[in-house]
Design a protein around this nucleic acid. Structure first.
Lengths: 198, 198
DNA sequence: TTCTTGATGATACGAACGTATCAGATACGG
DNA sequence: CCGTATCTGATACGTTCGTATCATCAAGAA
């Protein structure tokens, strides 16, 4: 048996190049040649591992989702005062804001994919199937907080979760554009957490 | 003086073709030749009126924003029971959801532009300058409702407006993907209106 | 009619890009 | 060292697209 290589790892390496290019030039600017150059490999190798560009984009999105989830769970695990549902919830919501360059890039790429998926069923499937619905997670946390007596009053957990999750997404998009400042967005989130938790 | 033609109207006619193509094939699929065909004019005429493709896209966005605002003000004017701030606010929020095919198309195109503007300063400028910030409008309505004694309690109008506007945007995006149903989204909005107005 | 603006048609250039092809280099386990 | 898996390089094909060119036609006001 000759040279053995971890194909999956190679694919992730190349997918990383897709993210970097998409993050600062847009998903439209992603082409096979530039991806190869950015990944430090030959064009031929990109073809070798992904066959087609479409395949490359789809898999790059899968890997991106994987990494986002890992980062989120890691953040939750590292939350100080994890006994408080409120503290954990706050961290979860923060994870979806462009709080640093890495999150900002991820959000930009994610959003670009989101729009493209409106006209690409295969990409849409990745969004609809591979992603854990955040609203349900948040709603569960609110229920849990209610039972623990942490909430200020009885609320409709599902509706509250829907608005706050969608709201954080919308606020994140505004941040990308510079339409808002991070401080203000955090203030809005904290205001609504205070409304729920007192 | 020879043949006179309303240039602005011609440009709007061609811009309409851009919207239609972008709405059901994506902004990437917009090219000069297809726009000309869709508008029922020659390729040469599209070049004649817009010079470059970039120009065409920028102006098409301007016209799209104009039309959206007109539609919004028309909707507000036609609101039954316009004496109630709550009723007006509800209509304003609805206007940003894909409630019918026309709104759905507008939202798709708008979103596609939004993402592209992340890598195109000229498009970003259109978003940042030409658009009336909805949050301020909503915050103003909440203040007004408070003074009229319509609100159930004292709230931070600005923070409430920020979340509900961003939330409606986020919910609208989910609707485009089929991740949510319109009924559910309306229920979420009504829940939060009830929370504010009682 | 004449002149100017509005509009068309055919065509072509050059660049970018996805994909394909083929020959060959490199490295590693048996 | 031999064979296989991995990787590269150069190159080419066909298509799409933005843009440019030039000749021409239509129409209406002066």
């Amino acid at each position: 048996m000759p040279k053995r290589v971890n194909h999956d790892e190679r694919r992730r390496q190349i997918a990383g190049a897709v993210w970097r290019i998409a993050a600062d030039q847009g998903l439209d600017a992603v082409n096979m040649r530039d991806v190869a150059a950015e990944a430090g490999v030959s064009l031929r190798l990109v073809q070798y591992y992904f066959e087609t560009k479409h395949n490359l984009l789809v898999l790059a999105l899968r890997y991106l989702n994987e990494r986002s989830e890992q980062r989120a769970t890691a953040r939750i695990a590292a939350t100080p005062g994890a006994t408080s549902t409120r503290a954990v919830l706050r961290e979860v919501l923060m994870e979806f804001l462009p709080i640093d360059e890495e999150h900002r890039d991820t959000l930009r790429v994610h959003l670009a994919y989101y729009v493209r998926s409106l006209n690409d069923p295969e990409l849409a499937a990745v969004f609809l199937n591979d992603e854990t619905p955040l609203e349900e997670l948040v709603a569960g946390m609110l229920d849990q907080a209610h039972e623990a007596g942490e909430l200020v009053s009885r609320v409709n957990a599902r509706h509250e979760a829907d608005l706050i999750v969608s709201g954080v997404n919308g606020l994140g998009i505004d941040l990308l554009h510079g339409r808002r400042q991070l401080d203000d967005v955090v203030a809005v989130i904290d205001y609504h957490l205070a409304r729920l938790f007192g």
